[in-house]
Design a protein around this nucleic acid. Sequence first.
DNA 1: ATCTATTCAGACATAAAAGTCTTAAATAAT
DNA 2: ATTATTTAAGACTTTTATGTCTGAATAGAT
Lengths: 144, 144
Amino acid sequence: MIYSKATEYALNALVYLAEQAPDDRNGVHQIADALDIPGHFLGKILQDLRKEKIVESSRGRSGGFRLARAPAEIGLYDVVSVLEDLQRYEMCIFDEYECTVDRPCSMVCEWNAVKNHITGFLQNHSLADLQMVRQFRADLDIPK
Amino acid sequence: MIYSKATEYALNALVYLAEQAPDDRNGVHQIADALDIPGHFLGKILQDLRKEKIVESSRGRSGGFRLARAPAEIGLYDVVSVLEDLQRYEMCIFDEYECTVDRPCSMVCEWNAVKNHITGFLQNHSLADLQMVRQFRADLDIPK
DNA sequence: ATCTATTCAGACATAAAAGTCTTAAATAAT
DNA sequence: ATTATTTAAGACTTTTATGTCTGAATAGAT
Ligand code: FES
Ligand code: FES
C-alpha cells in the first residue's frame, strides 16, 4: 500500500461499513475482528474519522460506528487527508520544491503529471468505487 | 517529497555529483555541507549506493565519492529502489492486493493506471533528467 | 615512517509511526 | 438503580526511520 497502515485500516473499515445496512451500528471490536486488524488502533483511527464527520458514533450498549453519509458522497481525498500529509504529493520528485504559478514546473519534469494523477484519483473517487472493486474481486472468487 | 528523507538525500547528492567534473572525488562532508543535510546520515546512504554500484568511493586523503557511470545511465528506479520498498507501489489503493494476470485488476479500478504511471516515471527517467530540472530552475532564478 | 584526511562499519540516540493498555463516560437492558 | 457493553481519551510500549558518534582501515602528503 502506498499509504500508512492507519490509512489502510481506515479505508478497509469504511468499505466494511459501506457494506453493512446503512443505519446499524458496528462496534470497533466487530470491525477489527472481521478485517483482522488491531482493535485499539482502529478505535483511534475511527475517532479521527468521526472528528472529520466521515463516520458517526454512539456509545454504550448497542453503540458503535456507521458512515455519516452514503458511500458515493465520501470522497477518498477527504478520507486519506485525515491520516496522511497529502502536501507530500504536491512536490517535485527529488526535493521539497512545490511548483506553483510563481514557481513553475520544469518543462522537462514529467513528474508533475504523475503527482496530478495521484491527487486527481483521490479527488475523483469515492468509497463507492472501492466497494465496486471489492465486489469485482468477490465475483471472480479471487482469494484474499 | 513522496519518498523518505533517505531517498531525498540520495537523489540530491547524486545530482550534486552529476554536476561536478566526472572524475573528481567529493567528500561526504563537502556534499553534506553544500546541500545542508546531515553528514553522517549521508555517509550511510552513500555506502548503500556504493554497494549497488551507483557510486564509487576511495578512502584516505583526497578520497571521496563519484558517480559510477554517466548520469543518463543511472536510472531513477535503480536509485530509489535502494532505499524504498517499491513493491508498495504495485498494490491497489486500499489494501495489499497485488494485481497480476491471475489476480486481475478491477475494471473499475483506475488506480492501476496511477501506479503504473509512478513506476513508469522512475523507469523512464535518469539522473540526467533531474539535472535538467535543476538547470531549468536555476535559469529562471527560482529561489530554493 | 609518520601524519592527516578520508571512507567504512557498527554502536548508539532521538523521533515518529504503529500498536497496546487502562480508565472514564455514556447508554441500553435488566 | 445496577450492570454489561461500548466509545472516548490518553498514557504507555514497541518498532522503524532518522540522525549522531566513535574507532578502525586506507591512502596521499610530508
Ligand atoms: S514536479 Fe518537478 S518541477 Fe514541478
Ligand atoms: S490497482 Fe486496484 S484492482 Fe488493481
